[in-house]
Design a protein around this nucleic acid. Sequence first.
DNA 1: GTTGAAAAGTGCAATCGCTACACTTTTGGA
DNA 2: TCCAAAAGTGTAGCGATTGCACTTTTCAAC
Lengths: 192, 192
Amino acid sequence: MVTELGRRERKKLQTRRSIADAATRLFLERGFDEVGVKEIADTADVSVTTLFKHFPSKEALLFDEDEEQESALVEAVRHREGRSIPMALRDHFVEAARGHADHPQFEVFQRLVVETPALRDYGHRMWTRHQDALARAIAEEVGAPEDDVRCAALARFALEARDVIFDRPDRERAADEVFGLLELGWAAEQQS
Amino acid sequence: MVTELGRRERKKLQTRRSIADAATRLFLERGFDEVGVKEIADTADVSVTTLFKHFPSKEALLFDEDEEQESALVEAVRHREGRSIPMALRDHFVEAARGHADHPQFEVFQRLVVETPALRDYGHRMWTRHQDALARAIAEEVGAPEDDVRCAALARFALEARDVIFDRPDRERAADEVFGLLELGWAAEQQS
DNA sequence: GTTGAAAAGTGCAATCGCTACACTTTTGGA
DNA sequence: TCCAAAAGTGTAGCGATTGCACTTTTCAAC
């Protein structure tokens, strides 16, 4: 079902992109706190009002399109080929980290986020938004009630694990240890 | 070493208290977003400048003095009388919840925090600040290096556990399940 | 094709949290 | 007694965000 979007939608997406692009470029060049929304709007050749019609906050300008992340998490739990759920999630994170290692832009992006408190917080909040979706996927996978506590906890822990692992030198080993912590407790009282 | 603080310190603490009290009262009466810092300052009979000399942000007005929480966490890990660390933390949370159940003011306070995104976020950020201290205490307890990954992960998970448990009807059972998830994985590869 | 309503964009004024600045008052100790 | 540090004040201002009234563009029904 390819939704052949008309000129209107196309233009809308276009201005949205041009705003996000301008913001990302300026932020990377000079730092989040050193760039005002006015300047971003000017660079993208739109009004400040328009900018805020497209994005709910200054921080949101940098975190665009993370719907893929959520579905990727859910997929990781679903198609896991015999592995336990914690191990499947571990692999998912490790692979994602490897994927990012390719693009050198990502390194700079991460650096900016980590070093700017406002962005660090916003990013973390966006990330943990996936908790419910992930918990539901896990529950469905093991036939538990949708709001099972253990599933919710595992989802939350897995999402938090990313940050714990992130600032370690050897991330792969860190991932092993952190998810290893969840593995046994999860296996007990659980069929898969 | 009782620090006999002089008139100056006493007055400072006094204005600080009167600001915090005014803020708390107004927030509880009308909601966080419905009260401006100007009004709080006026109520406490100080200038806005003075208010911000005592508190770093509007949110901080409600979360005063949580240094006790950190030491309580560390103590829970230290004096645990044979229990495993996850179980000691579980008990600590359950007891804390029971203690709060006594004061009915606390119910209202919690309600305000949970229902106000800005406060929810701020509270969570303050809470997770304890991660490092807790992780160090755990590491010291089991003789692991100060920055051990498993210790850091257990600390983070335990702190996050509070929120997972909070909105469940039967918090005690929820605590059992959530910390049970950590128990086995922690016990493996660990002497205590 | 024309037209009319919805959607996209604009510019301005205002709110609100927060900070810098220059200033007065208070206070504790030498 | 006196002085430097600390506490407090008022104003002016910044920057993100919103509401409002407005113009322009676009789509679709007629």
